[in-house]
């Protein structure tokens, strides 16, 4: 801060000041308390984590587990292949996320619409969501991955990658549609009344007033679903898609060493942990914003 022209608020009052003696004492004591807390946290972490590691490392089977799961030189060898597989997972996640976003939005809008003409579609959307939320993703992948090619319909793809992605999109769209729908329903009816009383039609009200607020609210839970989606793309390996899981499987079956699985897990974590941290931050921010709105 510049001493010649201290920062000022709207009314021109200086924002910087010389703290009183009492405030300086308070600051010092806050610092002391902080140091004490940090010391306790460190000590307790060292003791708890240290004894856990000791328990594992001194267990009778540790040496053989170490050789078959944590063979770092072998892990380094297969890293390239597994990482190449992970690129497939990431690409699949991005493409699926876009398709899911579109499809889920349509489902959510259908389910919340009150238009008489749309009644059959509304019923279909409801049935769709009920079914796909109730069947395990792995089953959907197997049914579509093996069922569709068995139909032998001319012109329909046999690519396991496309079929696997389709299965993921179908299932996740049902989950995401429900998240979006709950966001739409969470917008207070008075917002709708205000928009309608301004002459906006019900679709204009949805588009300009309800949806923008609803989407802001559901971003944090949807980011959670994105993390889950990335992990679940690993399930398409069952169809033979060479993703990170499949690449690890191939490498480990060659040598009967499980280190490639650990390698794949670590690579997944390198992406999911930052993404999860980011989600937490977004969530904290949105809670703060909503509280501020409530207070106003």
């Amino acid at each position: 801060m510049n001493n010649d022209s201290p920062a000022r608020d709207n009314s021109g009052r200086a924002l910087s000041w010389t703290p009183s003696q009492r405030e300086l004492e308070r600051q010092a004591s806050r610092k002391a308390i902080g140091r004490k807390k940090a010391l306790i946290a460190t000590l307790s972490s060292v003791i708890v984590i240290g004894s856990l590691i000791r328990l594992i490392v001194t267990s009778p089977g540790w040496q053989s587990v170490k050789d078959t799961f944590f063979d770092w030189s072998y892990g380094g060898e297969v890293l390239g292949a597994v990482a190449k597989g992970l690129v497939v997972n990431i690409r699949l996640t991005i493409i699926a996320a876009i398709l899911i976003g579109i499809f889920a939005m349509i489902l959510a809008l259908l389910r919340t619409s009150r238009s008489a003409a749309l009644t059959p579609f509304r019923l279909m959307a409801t049935a769709y969501v009920d079914i796909f939320r109730g069947v395990p993703l792995l089953l959907v992948i197997l049914l579509i991955g093996f069922g569709v090619p068995a139909l032998r319909i001319e012109g329909l793809t046999n690519s396991v990658l496309i079929l696997g992605t389709t299965a993921v999109v179908l299932t996740y769209s049902a989950y995401v549609a429900e998240v979006i729908r709950s966001g739409i329903l969470s917008i207070h009816p008075s917002q709708r009344a205000a928009a309608r009383s301004l002459g906006l039609s019900s679709s204009q009200t949805m588009r300009h007033v309800v949806l923008p607020q609803a989407i802001k609210r559901v971003v944090p839970p949807l980011l959670n679903d994105l993390v889950a989606l990335l992990k679940d793309t690993g399930l398409v390996s069952i169809l033979g898609v060479t993703d990170a899981v499949r690449a690890a499987q191939i490498a480990s079956s060659r040598t009967f060493n499980y280190t490639p699985y650990v390698t794949a897990a670590i690579l997944f974590l390198l992406i999911t942990i930052p993404l999860t941290r980011y989600t937490d931050r977004v969530l904290a921010k949105s809670i703060k914003r909503q509280n501020a709105q409530g207070a106003a």
């Binding site: 008075s190 917002q191 205000a194 301004l198 002459g199 906006l200 039609s201 300009h208 007033v209 923008p212």
Partner: peptide
């Protein structure tokens, strides 16, 4: 025109956008 006891402004829009929404869209 209707004004409610609880204002019901659109929280995701600036004051100007709140006012111009209906003139522009409707």
């Amino acid at each position: 025109g209707m004004v409610f006891q609880s204002f019901n402004l659109f929280p995701h829009m600036s004051v100007l956008d709140n006012i111009t929404l209906s003139p522009i869209r409707v």
